[in-house]
C-alpha cells in the first residue's frame, strides 16, 4: 500500500479571493473535481472572489490584461502591456477566454455552481467581504448555503484528511 492510498484526501476547503476568470475557474474546476471524486467540498468566496457568487456578476467575469506577462495574442506573440489600455481589449480578451473554455465544454459560472451543489458541494460567502462590498444575502446565487465568519469557516474545514487550498 502506498502513502497516497493510506492517506486519501477526504475533504477540501478552497478559498477564492480573486474575481478574474482564471482565479474563479481554478476554484470551480478543483471544487467540482473534488465533488466528482466523492471528496467532501467547501468553497469559500471572499474579497473580489465574491463576484463569482453574486447573481448579477457571476457570468460576466473578466481576465485582466494589464500586468499579466503570460498573456498572448492570437498566434502566440506576447501581448505588450501598452496594448492593455486600448479600449475594449479587456472585454475582447475575456470573450476569447470564455469562448475557448466553451469549446472544451467548460460551463459558465452559474452552471458550474449548479453542478457542484448537485453533487453535495457547499458554497459559502465571507461575511467580512460581504460587509465591505455592501452585498446582501439576496444578492448571492441560490447555491450559496451561507455567509460565514472566518472562525466558522475553520470549524467547517476541520477533520482528518482535510485540506485548505488558497487559489
Amino acid at each position: 500500500m502506498t502513502t497516497e492510498k493510506n492517506n486519501p484526501i477526504k475533504k477540501v476547503n478552497i478559498i477564492c479571493a480573486k474575481g478574474a476568470i482564471e482565479d474563479v475557474y481554478a476554484t470551480l474546476v478543483m471544487g467540482n473535481g473534488a465533488v466528482m471524486e466523492g471528496i467532501e467540498t467547501n468553497l469559500f468566496f471572499t474579497f473580489f472572489g465574491l463576484d463569482a457568487i453574486v447573481k448579477t456578476r457571476m457570468d460576466k467575469l473578466h481576465t485582466g490584461v494589464i500586468g499579466n506577462p503570460a498573456l498572448r495574442l492570437p498566434g502566440g506573440l506576447r501581448m505588450p502591456t501598452w496594448m492593455g489600455v486600448i479600449p475594449g481589449m479587456e472585454a475582447f480578451t475575456s470573450w476569447m477566454m470564455k469562448s475557448q473554455m466553451a469549446q472544451l465544454d467548460i460551463p459558465p459560472v452559474s452552471e458550474f455552481l449548479d453542478l457542484i451543489t448537485a453533487g453535495g458541494g457547499n458554497i459559502y460567502a465571507c461575511k467580512l467581504a460581504m460587509d465591505m462590498f455592501k452585498f446582501k444575502p439576496e444578492d448571492l446565487s441560490e447555491h450559496v448555503s451561507g455567509v460565514l465568519t472566518i472562525g466558522e469557516f475553520y470549524e467547517k474545514a476541520g477533520g482528518e484528511g482535510s485540506q485548505i487550498i488558497f487559489t
Binding site: 466528482m36 471524486e37 466523492g38 449548479d114 453542478l115 448537485a118 453533487g119 453535495g120
Partner: peptide, 11 residues
C-alpha cells in the same frame, strides 16, 4: 446530475 449523484454515491 443530482439524481446521478444519488444513484451512484461517492464518485
Amino acid at each position: 446530475v443530482k439524481t446521478f449523484y444519488q444513484l451512484f454515491p461517492g464518485a
